[in-house]
Structures are given as structure tokens and as C-alpha cells.
Design a protein around this nucleic acid. Sequence first.
DNA 1: CTTCACAGGTCAATGCCGTTGTCATAAGCT
DNA 2: AGCTTATGACAACGGCATTGACCTGTGAAG
Lengths: 237, 237
Amino acid sequence: MSDRVVPPDARRRRRPTKQGVVLSEELIVETALRLVSEHGADALTVRRLGLALGADPSSLYRYFRNADDLLLAVADALIGRALRDWAPSGDWCADLRELGRRLHAGALAHPQATVLSACRVTGRAHEIRAVETALGLLRGAGFPDAEAVRIYHAFIDQALGFAALDAANAALPQAAHDAEEEAWRTTYGGLSERTHPNIAATVPLLAATMRGSAYPTALNMLLAAAEARLAVHTRQG
Amino acid sequence: MSDRVVPPDARRRRRPTKQGVVLSEELIVETALRLVSEHGADALTVRRLGLALGADPSSLYRYFRNADDLLLAVADALIGRALRDWAPSGDWCADLRELGRRLHAGALAHPQATVLSACRVTGRAHEIRAVETALGLLRGAGFPDAEAVRIYHAFIDQALGFAALDAANAALPQAAHDAEEEAWRTTYGGLSERTHPNIAATVPLLAATMRGSAYPTALNMLLAAAEARLAVHTRQG
DNA sequence: CTTCACAGGTCAATGCCGTTGTCATAAGCT
DNA sequence: AGCTTATGACAACGGCATTGACCTGTGAAG
């Protein structure tokens, strides 16, 4: 049944469903995003998506090979939204910082969807554009190909990793958040200065810092290290 | 039915299953770990676990509230294994590198459990010990408290983020992996040098590099940046 | 304007999954 | 020996992804 899916440009017959909805790849992906952001990651099932669209669940298999394929399409749509209207400034370091910031922020805007998809190679249009852009910035800055690729890999996976982590945190129910806050105050705050001197000395700082995302710090450190490496290359070159 | 679970110390009757197995929390967790490492992430279902144990699946609900509870227990066992036998060497940078390596490797050894649990703050013993240790390394190295906390946060979330990302990747079914490999070869390999010059110039490097984890690179860059910062502080101090 | 191939929506069925209400029984106490 | 109850087993429920067969209206060709 893998030949059920017809490539988008070969689609012609826009036949409405029983409930009068005209399906399309975009409509399905958008509805999936809405479903996830409104009712949580668990709400994204083929059946529920069919219901939300006003179509039989099995209809979706005309557009996507399987549920995983659909998920990849959702992930790519997220990347697309994050990079919309981006333009390079000429400063590779600032550009990478902005790119990272956008990817991370875009992912956080749809935490549940990110949790489901942050780690996948989609091979779709938006992802390809992101790869090309970031690689171009690094090679343009003067990194040798091998190092440009290595730094690109660290850069993109760090952005996705933090996105997944922070998204998972943002997606937690309120009760879990309160419990976390409480854990910092009581469990960590109650530790003895003798047994846990370092925690005891920094508890207020810890509680304040751990609440937010460490991604900006990590991104800045990665870029600082990259700049230092580049200085070595240009001195040698 | 949440009162089905009896706390471990209240258990007395060691009644064997039909197939002669005597269940216990530890045996269940260990069997779950074995199941995952032997037959892949998808093999960890309540039904399959019951089968592997020689017990009815519903018996497991005498020991765990639900499948998620079971997974958390598995994850907790993982943290314990990852930090077992660790001892500081005196070189803060090398120690942090080793700590990061262990956390990451431990998580990768059991991807499925990591994916579902990397983002939770447990507040348990092992986690507390890890916090105290890493903070101690940074403060001992000479970082001011505020910066030690910031760098610690970046360090630990980087480890967890990459662990989640790489674990999710490792947890993919074989078919998805093949598809990914294929995507790099055909989709990215087939891009024109004119439209995507940077990808075209580095495709072999990309395909080779993206297969592995970027965590070692990212960790080294973070530590390099930290060392550079420390040099500034000690010069000033 | 009619014809008709087939894209695409629908139906029904399959075999997984987690979970639970109920029952049977043996372990460990007195 | 008898009682309590922890704990294993059974059967059932509803939800899940997926698929094969069927049906219908679209839209191009003649």
C-alpha cells in the first residue's frame, strides 16, 4: 500500500470529504499543529486528526505513507516557520547566533510538536535550506570544509537538543512545574552545608538560573570557541 | 486502581508465576533493560515484558502504577549505572569532560528510556550528587559563583539535550535509519552545485559526520570557552 | 456532450497496545 | 488449622496504526 501516496504536483481531483472539507497536505499539517498546540502531544493520532479534519482517518494515507511520514512533514513546517524572513547580515557569528535563536524560539513556540520531532532528519525543503545557509556561513568565514561540517553539526544538534529539552519542560503540566519549583526550594534548599557545600553556597543562584533556558549561554560558548578556532586557522593560512 | 501497587518494604509473599518466576521490582527493571538492549526500543511494551518475564502482563501493575512509572524506574537505574565508580582526578576540565561523557554514554545505552525521561527533574539522590560534584569542580577551578552556576547549567543541559537527541535517533526503528541514510545520499547528494554550493561541496563529509554524535565536539567547545573565561578571571583576580 | 479511467474518500477488519475488574490461590501469620 | 490478603491469572475494553476492497465524482479525451 505504499503506492497510495500521490506526489503533490500530480494531484488534480479536489474531491471534498463527506463533511465538505477539501484535503491537502498543507491543511493536514496545519491541522496537526493546531491539534498538538491545543490538546497536547498525545492528541496527535491519525484517528483524531481525521476527526478534526472532518475526514476518515484512512484518507490521510493518501497524503502520507504513514504516521511517521506525517510527523516529519510537521517538523519541516516548524523549521520553515522559524526561518521565514531571515536574511544574512554579513557577520557570520552574529548570523549563526540569530539562526540558533530562531530555531530554538520557533521550537519553543510549539513545544509538543518539537518533543515529537526535534531529532529527525526530514530531508524536506525547509531543512535543506537551513543546512545550506549555516554551512555557507561557516565556509564563508574561512573554516576548512571538514571543520565547517563538524562545527555545523555541533551547532545544529545543540540547537535541536536544547529545543527538545526546553520544549519538553514547557510542555509539562502546571502541576509538574510547581513540583519542580518546590523541589528546588525544599530538597535542594534543605541540604546541609557540610554534606553539600557547593549547592548550599549557591542555592539562590541555582534556583534563579535553572528556571530559564541555558541555551543562550551554551550558544555563546560554542560560538566563542568557534571564533578562537578560526583565529588559529587564519593565522596559519 | 492506583492502590494496586504495594510499597517495596511491605511485600512479603514471594509467590512464583505459573512459569516459576519470582517477580520483584529489580527483576522487572533489569528484564526491561535487557529487552530494550537485545530487541530494540520498540520491544519494551507491558505485554512483551510480561512474556519475557514469564508472567501475565497485568501482574506488572502490582509493582508499577503504569507503563510510565516503570520507565521512570528504568531511567533511575540508568543514572545510577552511569555515575557508578566515578572519582575526580583533580583536573576540573578533564573531570567535567568525563562526567559529560558518562552521562551521555549511559543515556545512549538505553535510548528508549532516555527519550521519555531526559527532561524530568527527579530530585533523587543520584541527581543531587551530580549537581554537587559538577558545581564543586567549577567553583574549585576558580569561577565566581554566578558564573559557575551559569556554566553548570549550560553543561548539564547540553549533556541532557544531546543525550535526548542522540537517544531518540538511536531509538528509531531500523527502517527509519535506512531512510535517513538514503536521504543523505539521494536528496542531499542530488542537489545542484549551483543552487546549493555549500552542500554540494561537502556532501561526503556531511554524510560521514552526521552519522555520529556531535556531542564530543560540542562538549569540547563548551569546555574550551570555559577555560578561556577562566583565564580572564584569574588574570583579573 | 458523453464517456470513462482513476484519484481519492469511505468502510470494515486486523492485530497490536495499555489498562482494569474480577477471581483464585498460596504465603505467612496467629 | 484457619484466616487474611498479597499477588498472579484471566478476560475484556477501548484506542491505536494500518490496509484491502469498494465506491463515487472529477476532469480530461474524443
